[in-house]
Structures are given as structure tokens and as C-alpha cells.
Design a protein around this nucleic acid. Structure first.
Lengths: 188, 188
DNA sequence: AGGTTATGGTTTGATCTCAAACTACTTGGC
DNA sequence: GCCAAGTAGTTTGAGATCAAACCATAACCT
């Protein structure tokens, strides 16, 4: 029963939820409203975020979540999520990579990679061979099918990045990424 | 058996892993090395990230992960993770909040909130009362203990933000946050 | 009123992730 | 050669999260 865990596909998170679409339309009036006890705050978008509003950590989380969802949505038709995408890209650019290296590059624990790799192998998107000189390690590479899938994902990703660019503004983009990199590199 | 799931504490992710500390010290030389098949790339930090390097999504994820880990580490002694922190802060600033509102403010599904709230109530950090005019909804507020815990978390958070500031540079900080907000708001 | 529709919260089932324990192979010292 | 220490991957156990299905209450409509 070892395998059969990381079963792609359904994994795409960001579709939409029954409840959410109706959002807060009338909850405003008198009905579902909750009415903060303090002063006269209604409740629509008027929640007081306090210090959260200006903290990097919180905003980082919200932004990340949002892009993640958006990309999931885009890549849904391809049948792979954001995680698989990074994995495939890295294998493509670095054929012969080991799982440990891959996990370090994507910032995930090597153990989280096991089911993912298993799944990708099973679906013949990547290949995995033992090394001659080190029978412990694997050596990963893309199959032709994997390259095709990656190409589709790449198209979705470009679209996604264009959307982001529209929000960020091409001017600030480089600096923005620079900061993100500094954070990723520095916070450990 | 309904409850007992969201059991704080152990939830703090970012401690450190046996394997990780030894990181890449000698894997460089000849031993554990994997040797990309291509040209002469060694393998330490020399992985080719290809387009990932300049994509917002990926860098956002890496940065978020890093700060998350760092804050987990800091708040570990308090015994609450980053998630609980946002939750407590929002309840503190908006007493009477409902769970749905809370989940929307933190960007999580309302169903993920159920165990968290349950746990916080069980440990008497928050209180939960039914509303008179709407017997479905709850109305959340902090207890005195909750306020104390929040204060500790706040100290950890301030330290954390100072660390981030050092990386970002106070000058760019405002703009950085602005962009994060735009992304969070725009990508849905 | 009585039924339909909406809404707050919980349950359930799936995925993802981490961390620690474990197995198999490797290296290095003796 | 043999044993101790290290390293690659896997297993296992726990938590977080989402989404859809569900229950209970509330609002709306005729």
C-alpha cells in the first residue's frame, strides 16, 4: 500500500466554493449582520486589521495565497498544480538532479517529494534511474510527455505572470522580486 | 470525537530537521554529488532555476515560506503559530466578529477555522457566544488570558518585523507592502 | 402561514507539508 | 576487511487547508 498517495489532478485547489460566491451582499442590512460591539462599525469590508495591515508577514501570506489560487485555476486544465510545475521546471533545467537537491531548490522537505515523484513517474512524466556510483540516489529527468506537459504549464504560467505584471507594474517588478529573494535567502 | 483536532503547540512547524543542518558541506566534493549530465555544473547552489528565477509566483512562495518558518520559530515559546496569531489579532480588534467574517479576513475557508476556534475556546483564549438575533452565528471575543497571549505574540511579531525590515530596507517597505496588497486584492 | 432560498457553522474526505524514525548504501578510519 | 558515521530516500504520524455535503436557523415570497 505504499504508493497511491500523491495523486495529482484533484489537487488543484482554487476552484470556487458554493458558499463563497454569494459573498456579502445583503448580510449588510439587518439580517446576517454581526455588529461589532464597539462603536458603529458595520461589517462588510470594514474589518479592522490593526497591525496586521502593515505587517510584512501577513500581507505576504495573503498575496501568496491569492497567486497560488489564481495559478491553480489557470493550470487546472493542464491537470497539474503549482507545486508540480516548479518540480518539472527544475528537473527540465537540471537533468540528473537528485531528489534531495530538488527538495532543497523548491524549499520543501525531501519527504514531501516522495509521493510527488512517485506520481510523476507513474504517469510517465519523469524518469528516475539509480546512479551507478551511488546506488542510494536517484537521477531524475523529463520524458517527452513531461516536456509537453511542462510546455503547457509554461503557457499558463506566462499568462499568470502577465496578470501579475498588470497589478505590480512592470517598473517595480524587478525590485519587488529582488526583495522577495532577499527575504527567502535571509530569513533562515 | 468531533473535537481534539486542532491541537496547537506541536503545530509550530519551523524547528529544524536532523538532516537539514548538515546541509551541503561535503556533498560538494566527490561524494554525494549528483553531477548534472549537461555541461560542467557542479551542484551546490548552482542549480539552474530557469524562468522560475524571475517569476513572481515562485519567489512569492519561497519568501512566504521563509517568513512563516522564521515566525514559527520565534513564536514557538509562546506556543502559538502564525495562524493563531492572525486569528487572535482580528478577534481582539473586532470583538463580536463571526467565524465567517474571520475566515474571510484571513483568507481561509470557514471550515478550516472550525478546529482552530474549537481549540482556542477549549484553552480559554477566546469566548464564543450565540447571537440573540441570529442563533446560527457565533460572536467571538478574547478572554483576559487571550489578551495576554496575544501580547506575547505581539512582542514576537515585532521582533520578526524588525528582522524583515533589516532585509527589505525601511525605505522600500511601504511600497513593498502596497504591492503585496494589490496582489492579494487583485488576483481573485 | 408554508415553502423556497440563503446563510453560519460543522463534518468529511482529500492533498500537502513537515519532522522524526527508519532502511539501504557509502565513506573513512583503524 | 570491518565498523562507525554520514547521506539518499521512504515511512509514519500529525497538522493545516480546501471543497463539497450537510444541519440548523433565518429571510423572503406568495
Amino acid at each position: 500500500m505504499t504508493s497511491s498517495r500523491g495523486t495529482q489532478g484533484a489537487g488543484v485547489k482554487g476552484v470556487k466554493s458554493n458558499d463563497r460566491k454569494a459573498r456579502r451582499s445583503k448580510s449588510q442590512g439587518k439580517a446576517g449582520g454581526v455588529r461589532r460591539s464597539k462603536s458603529g462599525e458595520t461589517n462588510a469590508g470594514s474589518i479592522d486589521f490593526g497591525p496586521l495591515a502593515t505587517w510584512v508577514g501577513f500581507n505576504l501570506r495573503m498575496a501568496q495565497e491569492a497567486t497560488f489560487q489564481a495559478f491553480s485555476h489557470l493550470s487546472q486544465e493542464v491537470g497539474e498544480g503549482p507545486g508540480r510545475f516548479a518540480t518539472l521546471t527544475l528537473i527540465a533545467r537540471n537533468p540528473g538532479l537528485s531528489q534531495t537537491e530538488l527538495s532543497q531548490a523548491t524549499g520543501r522537505d525531501k519527504s514531501s517529494l516522495t509521493p510527488v515523484i512517485e506520481d510523476l513517474v507513474r504517469r510517465r512524466l519523469i524518469e528516475r534511474k539509480r546512479l551507478d556510483h551511488d546506488r542510494r540516489a536517484y537521477c531524475l529527468s523529463l520524458t517527452a510527455a513531461g516536456q509537453k506537459t511542462l510546455a503547457s504549464l509554461m503557457r499558463a504560467a506566462r499568462k499568470h505572470e502577465r496578470n501579475l505584471d498588470r497589478l505590480i507594474g512592470a517598473r517595480d517588478r524587478t525590485q519587488f522580486i529582488e526583495i522577495l529573494k532577499k527575504i527567502a535567502a535571509g530569513m533562515r
